[in-house]
Design a protein around this nucleic acid. Structure first.
Lengths: 162, 162
DNA sequence: TCTAAATATTTTAAGTCTAAATAAAAATTA
DNA sequence: TAATTTTTATTTAGACTTAAAATATTTAGA
């Protein structure tokens, strides 16, 4: 006969398998969205996701950000930020300002042109994101937001105490 | 006085902003987990995430997979799969088998050594993933899994009809 | 059959990313 | 103060990634 309540060992194995399935599904959703954003940014604005991300960080911080802070917020290495900033500076969208307090540091800011160019991209980008999540109702989006918030907190507290 | 029910325009703007916040949180969670897995794979097994991913796909398909199928499942280009397969083949973990039906194709399979090496990594990796999601209760994980499933379905159906 | 179109993989060029090494400046400590 | 450590940014080497072009083979159509 088929048992309605699997024994503990089986149940555990299923939980384990379930965690992997959950992780793969999370990864798939993120990959599908980033791939689509990447393609559209290239086709419509001839730019890349890392460039867009850096501009987005600066838009949120008109006072400017240091390289290390950009690196933390973008979750990439500082070496990576150096390269992307070089490009955007060459394109005239951002500029490094010397920090009088600390001569090792720069403060990176949007140029007026950078603010203008990013503004248009951000408007369109927001429409894309709304479109991607439009398959969920508002309350489902709230639920997803809350669950991811709890997950994020757990991940960050774990990191603090390895 | 403060209105309890914002007008339609404000409400819409908030929804928009909320979609962006949801997307950034989804991206952050995925980035935190992949970064941690990447670090641990390097430290404990001296390997990389793409290599692990390719082996994982083959483990699930003992009959072997063609390059194009690996590419679709891993969500990367076929050119990319060529390079990773080259490495793993040089390390003796996978092998290309000629397809007698279609001489353009290869079937990629795990070697016995590849199966052995991956088995140990997969066991440890599963423990990591369980750890990452242990901040959520079983029912919360079920809820997250379901919401992501709905999101994934929406993303895939959209892709089909651009 | 012969040709054109489609398919499967590899190659190429350019860009992105990480980890580790380096250089310079600041902060700490002896 | 001088020496040491830490912080900040850059550089370097190597792996990964994509998009597009090239190659080889199969399939479909005239």
């Amino acid at each position: 006969m088929v048992s309605l309540k699997p024994d503990l060992e089986t149940r555990l194995a299923e939980d384990h398998h379930q965690a992997i399935k959950l992780w793969l599904r999370l990864l798939t959703c993120t990959n599908l969205i980033t791939a689509e954003i990447r393609t559209r940014l290239r086709e419509e604005f001839d730019t890349t996701l890392p460039r867009f991300d850096l501009l987005a960080q600066l838009e949120r911080h008109p006072e400017g950000l240091r390289m290390g802070e950009l690196s933390r917020r973008m979750m990439v290495t500082t070496g990576n930020v150096t390269g992307i900033t070089d490009q955007l500076e060459a394109e005239g969208l951002v500029r490094r300002e010397v920090d009088l307090q600390d001569r090792r540091s720069f403060t990176v800011k949007l140029t007026p042109q950078g603010r203008k160019v990013f503004g248009e991209m951000a408007r369109v980008h927001e429409g894309w994101v709304i479109e991607f999540f439009s398959g969920l109702s508002a309350s489902e989006r709230d639920g997803l937001f809350a669950l991811l918030g709890k997950l994020k907190t757990h991940l960050n507290t774990k990191e603090a105490q390895p």
